[in-house]
Amino acid sequence: MIRPVTADDLGLLHSLVHGMAENEEATGQISTDRDELGRALFGPDPVAWAHFAVDDKTGEVVGYTLWALVYSTWRGTAIHIDDIYIRPDLVGTGIDTALLSHLAALSAERGYRHMQWWGRVTNEPVAAYYRSLGAEIPSVQGGELTVFRLSGAPLADLARQA
């Protein structure tokens, strides 16, 4: 079963976010805390949403997805999936497809034009799975797109130029 995360679930979601970071060997990259996560999801103007994958037999949360809306002047409104995490012992059991298909249904219901997420193309089994769903790696005039990020001191330096 897929269900929305509620404010009462914030502690569990926060621990799963850290579990995902541990799995990715990236715990040092987390700079948000539980309070900020709560404001993002449940504040007066939410900027993100999350869903849990729940085992139908045990009621245990076995995965989650966290997403936000993005807008493109070329493609319209879309879901950007920031996290999709399945407990490592359950990868490949269909939970990832259940989460993605739930978000696809939300996209269709709300008129969003596409879904997007980051992934490592070097992780061939995962990349092959995404391609099997019909996912593409977008390109503009023949070149692959990449994501540029500005944060920390460079972001502050640029802000001072305003």
Rank of each mutant, 00 (worst) to 15 (best):
I2Q: 01
P4N: 09
P4R: 07
D8A: 15
D8M: 08
L16T: 02
G19M: 07
E22F: 11
E24P: 03
A26P: 03
G28P: 06
R34M: 15
E36W: 08
E36C: 08
L37Y: 06
L41T: 00
F42R: 03
P44Q: 14
P44E: 15
D45P: 00
D45V: 13
A48H: 02
W49S: 04
H51W: 12
F52V: 08
F52R: 00
A53F: 07
D55W: 06
D56C: 10
T58M: 01
T58A: 08
E60G: 06
E60T: 15
G63T: 00
Y64N: 04
T65G: 04
L66G: 04
W67F: 13
A68H: 09
A68E: 06
A68V: 06
G76E: 03
I79N: 00
H80A: 09
I81H: 02
I81G: 02
D83L: 09
Y85H: 03
R87Q: 14
V91N: 10
G94C: 06
I95T: 12
I95L: 09
D96L: 02
A98M: 11
L99K: 00
L103W: 00
A104I: 02
S107T: 10
E109V: 10
R113G: 14
W118N: 13
V121T: 13
V121W: 11
A127L: 05
A128F: 05
Y130K: 08
S132G: 11
L133V: 04
E136I: 15
I137V: 14
P138I: 03
S139H: 11
L145V: 08
T146D: 11
V147H: 03
R149S: 11
S151I: 03
A153V: 14
A153G: 05
P154S: 07
P154N: 10
L155I: 05
D157Q: 14
L158I: 12
L158S: 09
R160Q: 13
Q161K: 14
A162F: 10
